[in-house]
Amino acid sequence: MIFSKKKNPVDLTFSFITGIASVSVILITAGILYVLFKESSLSIERFGFFKFLTLVDWDPVKESFGAAAALYGTLITTVLALIIAIPVAVGIAIYVTEVAPNFLKGPVGIAIELLAAIPSIIYGMWGLFTLSPIMAKYIEPFLQRTVGKLPLVGILFEGTPLGIDFLTASMILGIMIIPFTASISRDAFNLTPAVVKESAYAVGATKWEVVKDIVLPYSKLGVFGGVAISLGRALGETMAVAFVLGNNNQITTSLFGAAATVTVKLANEFTEADKDIYLSSLYYLALLLFVMSFIVLAIAKFLLLKAERRYSR
């Protein structure tokens, strides 16, 4: 660098201090990985990797712990939330970039970002007191009476609808991740060069054809990146689902069944774990969660960087 030839001693100290501060991020990341691994070593020794992943039991009395039910819960809530969130989020992004009149673009964008700023515990509480009774009283019985009667999909809607179940939890989670996906998709849409869009208009494309054939293919990577970030967030979301999932350690095919996710289990049982193997198994769950979400988020970051590099030239 230009100025490193003659170093002032204060400069050396300052660069050293700032250097340490920035390395703290690496230390924290490595520290989390190391500590989670160390704390779960007891459980890793006892249950191994594949047994822990496939064992449905979660029995503190018999000291038999497996992650299958919790992982299943995490997977189902996350996938359902994404199914709810992605179409809406992409629709919002299209609305904000292409459809909305100029005076509405700003306010709608801000409204969506406010939705992202509301803390997850508020979503969770609102879900418990407001959404869950509505689901139990109106929406879930309605679903049971209509689609629940169909063959094959019927098993998805079995049981008494109590509102404390997969469907409610996924709804809340979905509403929560809509803004993340929407705002990243909007940024990706905005990267499409105006010239390319204009040339499509010039050959007579309608507005929708421009969105469908020009903007969407152009911003594919960015949208995938946004979806991956939402996926990472949904995997690790605790408070929004803790209220309305019931922490019930079972694998159920019904959307109206209470269940548990990795995060819900941690939130409810961590301070109650009275045996070493119990706590260690909870740490094992935390380790799996950390590794999973880290990988997903790293992929998301990779996609977004690639999208940026390709189009911001």
Binding site: G31, V35, L36, G236, E237, T263, L266, A286, S293, K301
Partner: peptide, 27 residues
């Protein structure tokens, strides 16, 4: 190194908060 830390931070921003809780519990 700057690029690496920058990307790592972006990932850590979205890492599950509850995992941070378990980490601090242990240390």
């Amino acid at each position: 190194i700057a690029r690496f830390i920058s990307i790592l931070s972006d990932i850590m921003v979205s890492v599950p908060a509850i995992v941070v809780g378990t980490f601090v519990y242990a240390i």
